[in-house]
Simulated scan of single mutants.
Amino acid sequence: MKDNIKNNDATRVQLELDLGEQLNVIISASHALNVRTAARFDPTLQPAAFIIVRWLFSFGPTSATALSESTAMDRSSVSRLVNQLKNLGYVKSEQSPSDRRGVLVSLTELGQQRTMDALKEKENAFYERIEKWDDSKLETFIELLKDFNCYRTK
């Protein structure tokens, strides 16, 4: 009985190590793809600027404070990057309709178009990995990721 428990523990440890390895592959590949996507958006910008652009594209206008919190960047970095993006015509600042003292940052039309163009490359890279999967395998993968990420939509 003890040998069986030890074997099960060893199997579990190896499975967890294998999982860690695969997660590292995903994280590393995703980071490299994000850097390439950022360069496609605008090669003169730091990849961190594209994190802001991508957030605005996904979630819409927001304050610099919310951008800082949601991207885990300090306020000064966000401010500097937003100013660069403004100077290049990718983002704009407007007075908040709900709080006249507040300012909302949002993508311009140019920023939205450049983001969509840049994301096509990223979408293609991920699509190539799943294109031969049947719907059942893709559904299972999505469900497992939702469980792993503790993320369930409505």
Rank of each mutant, 00 (worst) to 15 (best):
N34T: 02
T37Q: 02
L67T: 07
E123C: 06
F126E: 09
W133Y: 12
R54W: 10
W133R: 04
W133G: 01
T140E: 13
T65K: 13
N8C: 03
T65F: 04
F126S: 10
I26P: 03
Q14T: 09
A66S: 14
R75D: 07
M73V: 04
V35M: 01
L56A: 01
F141C: 05
S93H: 03
P47N: 05
T153E: 10
D3Q: 13
L15K: 15
K2I: 09
D9M: 15
A49D: 03
L107A: 08
V82K: 14
K132I: 03
T140W: 04
D3E: 13
A66H: 12
T115P: 01
I26H: 15
V13D: 10
D147P: 00
K92D: 12
Q112W: 05
R100D: 01
L15I: 14
A48F: 01
Q22G: 04
F141A: 15
I130M: 11
L110C: 04
A38L: 03
L81S: 00
L119N: 06
K146V: 02
R80C: 02
D18Q: 14
V13Y: 14
K6D: 12
E121C: 01
S98T: 14
A49I: 00
L23Y: 12
L33H: 02
L81T: 01
L110I: 14
L17N: 11
L145E: 05
E123N: 14
T11G: 09
L85T: 07
L67S: 12
A125W: 08
S68F: 04
T153S: 09
G60R: 10
L45D: 03
L144N: 10
R114M: 09
D134G: 03
E109D: 06
N24P: 00
L107H: 07
W133E: 06
Q14H: 11
E139A: 15
R80K: 13
L144D: 08
A29G: 15
I142A: 14
L145K: 03
Q14V: 10
D134V: 02
V13G: 06
L17Q: 13
E21W: 11
Q14G: 03
A10G: 07
L85P: 07
T115N: 04
S28V: 05
L33D: 08
L145T: 04
P97D: 05
K137Q: 10
E69F: 03
